[in-house]
Simulated assay, not measured.
Amino acid sequence: MWNTVVPRILQPDFTWPRTIHYKISEVTPAVPRLPGKTTRKAWGLFHKALYYLSEYYCSWFHIHFDPHIVQLPFGLVMKWTDRTSLEEAAAMQMVEAAGIPVPKFLSCGEHPADPSNRKYSILMTRIPGIALENSFDPFQADTEEPWLYELRTCLHSMRQWRPPCPTSICSAIGTCLRGPRIPCHIMGPFANKEEFYEYLFSPASSHGFKSITAYKQALSCARKLEHHSHRVTFTHGDFKAHNIMVDDDGHLSGFIDWESAGWYPEYWEFTTAMRFGRSSWWYQAASWMGGDQYSDELASDIALNLLTVDSYIAM
C-alpha cells in the first residue's frame, strides 16, 4: 500500500542515480582530508539522532531494524559497528574518486562515550542491486554477466596504484589495518614486510594439530610467504561475494564494506577470497580474476590460518 502513497524518495529501496564509469583510474587517488575531532563529534550527535529516527522509520515500513546498518529515507544508510573506522571512510573516498562504484561517503561521526565500543559511524548513500551469493555451482566466465569483467577491471586498476611508501603495510591514511582474519582483528602499521610477518606469526600455536610433526610442517609451509618478493598494492581486504552488488542489468553496482582496506602484499586480496571452499563458485571466480597466480601463497596462507586461528576466531 505504502509504495503507491509514499513519495519514492522516502521508500526503503530508493537509490540515487549513479554515473557509470567505463574506465577506472590507474593513478593513485589523493588521500582525503578527514574532518577534525570536534567536527566528527558534532556529526556523531546528528548520526545518533538518525539512529533513533531509523527505529521509527523501519517500524513504519515494517522492515527489520538493523542497529549496525541503519536504514534511512532519502536513499541513505548509516554504518555504525565496532569495526567502522576513519580508515574505512578514507578508503571509500579514495576508491570513489578513482571511479569504482561504492556508496557515496557523506559524513563520519565520532562517538567516544558509546558503551558498545562503536566509536565511529559513516553516513552514505544506498547502493542499488543485490549482493552476490557463493555456491558450489560451476563457474563459467563466458556465461557470467558484465559485473565479472567490471569487477576485474576495478581490481586491476587498484593494483596499479602506488603506495606512499613502497614497503609500508598500512591503512589508506597510514595507520592500523583491521580485518576478520588477523590476530586481534587489528594490526600495524608496519614499516616493512619483516615487521608484518613477525606480527602475523607471533600467535602461532600447535594447539590445533594432532602432532608436533604436523605443526612443524604447517609452520614451514607458512614461512614460505616471507621469501616471496611481493609488491605492496591497494587491497579491499575482505574480497568476498557478499560484498559485491549487482544491478538488474547484470552490471557491477557496488563494491562495499571497505573496513579492511589498505596497502597489503599483492597476494592478500586473492588468498583472502580463496582460503575456503576450493570447489566453490567464488573460489573459481577469484582465481579467474587473478588469484590463479598465487597458488603457492594460498597454500602458505591456509597453513598460517591453521597456526593462528585461535587469535581471532573467538573475538
Rank of each mutant, 00 (worst) to 15 (best):
L50N: 01
R162W: 01
H21N: 09
S279L: 12
I186V: 15
K104N: 13
P29N: 03
A141M: 11
I212V: 12
L298Q: 05
G262C: 05
D248I: 11
P32D: 00
S168R: 14
T19Y: 11
K48L: 11
A91W: 06
E87M: 05
F65W: 09
K119D: 02
K41P: 00
D66Q: 00
K23T: 14
L10F: 15
E150K: 14
E110D: 04
L53C: 03
S85I: 02
S25L: 08
S25V: 09
H236L: 06
L123N: 06
W258K: 00
A214E: 15
T81E: 01
D301T: 05
W60P: 00
I212Y: 02
S280N: 08
Q71V: 00
K104D: 08
P265T: 09
V6T: 10
H251Q: 10
L53A: 08
L50M: 12
A97D: 10
R223T: 13
P128T: 07
W258I: 05
A285E: 09
E96P: 01
C165Q: 15
W43Y: 08
V70G: 01
T233M: 07
N134C: 08
I69R: 10
I130Q: 13
I173Q: 13
M245V: 01
R223E: 09
V70F: 01
R126G: 13
Y283R: 07
F239D: 13
S260P: 07
Q284H: 15
A214M: 14
D142R: 04
L306H: 10
L10S: 12
E269R: 14
P101Q: 09
P189W: 09
P67R: 09
E55F: 08
E194D: 15
F136Q: 10
V31S: 09
T271L: 09
D296Y: 06
S311G: 04
T15Q: 07
S280V: 04
R18E: 10
T15L: 05
S260I: 05
H228G: 13
G129A: 07
T272F: 03
R40D: 03
A42M: 08
A89W: 07
I302S: 02
P180Y: 15
L200G: 12
A286I: 06
T235E: 13
F234Y: 12
E88N: 06
T84W: 02
E55K: 11
P35N: 13
V5C: 03
K41M: 14
Q93L: 04
G237L: 04
E266T: 08
K23V: 12
G109Y: 01
E297G: 03
A172N: 01
S300I: 04
Y120W: 12
T84Q: 02
C154N: 04
L50Q: 01
R223W: 00
P29H: 08
V95W: 00
K193C: 12
W288Y: 10
S295Y: 02
A172D: 02
S168I: 01
H68P: 00
I63Y: 00
F46N: 00
N243C: 12
G277I: 09
Q140N: 14
K48Q: 12
W147C: 05
H62A: 14
S157Q: 11
Y22N: 14
D257V: 05
E145G: 06
S311W: 04
K79G: 02
F65E: 04
